[in-house]
Nucleic acid binder design. Structure first.
Lengths: 138, 138
DNA sequence: ATCCTACAGTGGACTTTGTCTAAGTCAAAC
DNA sequence: GTTTGACTTAGACAAAGTCCACTGTAGGAT
């Protein structure tokens, strides 16, 4: 996704080999890697990249709004490069596989004022759980 | 919630001082404690209780379906004793306060077959995010 | 009431995930 | 080519949770 690299450069992001590699790893549909997985893949392209740099870079990408953090379980956070189209997630309860999904309807509208307890509600996150075809079949 | 203790005993759960204390700590509405918070409160009632026991007991309560695990952020899991009425959560993005909420509608019905990728979808979890009155006002 | 024993609890080491820091390096402006 | 401040690094540290070998005890059997 050189688009991403272009956008980042345009925003004054200083380009380095490490950042380029991280951006390259986070490329595609239905990509939901943990920080350590990103690091593992980055190392194959740039062996001396450090864990701290991967964490820093992911954090910056999240701040810039180019990548979303996803917390589907209590384990590691995952990073989702599909930040430009709003979506929710479908998670396999057995193997942890994740798909991006686009439900109909607007769950924000389903929360009546009486259930808002004075909160200013600005966002909603929906996680569907079930079994993926592989785990359901086996 | 002696109901809970009764139910557990009825299921053949061996009753011990430690388990009783953990069950007592997890009592009430809008209770969403982390394992460490549960431990901290349990210690005031039973000073020698160990962290491992609290984790074990919480895990068992979750397996028994008496308590729900809630992962609202990347930090510690929280434990929600309100397992018998389905509900979702409203979380303050600033201070982390959590309320149980009951939206209208059924988000499960909002996921068309074409968006299920062959998964057997059995559950959905909705997390609303925003600012609580205190954090919005300040 | 006492004994037994399988199940429960304990503390501490260990693992995983993530953060911080001091010192070295390098991209980009000049 | 120099300069400079932002970027990277390695490793120490921290928080949350798991594991394990040993000890203790609830509750049934006697």
């Amino acid at each position: 996704m050189s688009d991403l690299l272009e956008r980042l450069r345009g925003r004054g992001w200083r380009m380095t080999a490490q950042r380029r590699v991280v951006a390259e790893v986070l490329n595609g549909e239905h990509v939901h890697l943990t920080a350590d997985e990103v690091h593992a893949r980055a190392v194959t392209k740039l062996p001396e990249i450090s864990r701290a740099t991967v964490y820093n870079t992911l954090g910056e990408l999240v701040s810039l709004g180019e990548v979303l953090e996803v917390t589907t379980d209590k384990r590691a956070k995952r990073y989702d490069p599909n930040a430009h189209r709003p979506h929710h997630h479908l998670v396999c309860a057995r193997c942890g596989a994740i798909r991006d999904v686009h439900p109909t309807g607007n769950p924000l509208a389903d929360l009546p004022d009486t259930e808002r307890f004075g909160f200013t509600v600005s966002d909603v996150e929906v996680t569907y759980r079930g079994l993926c075809p592989d785990c359901a079949g086996a």
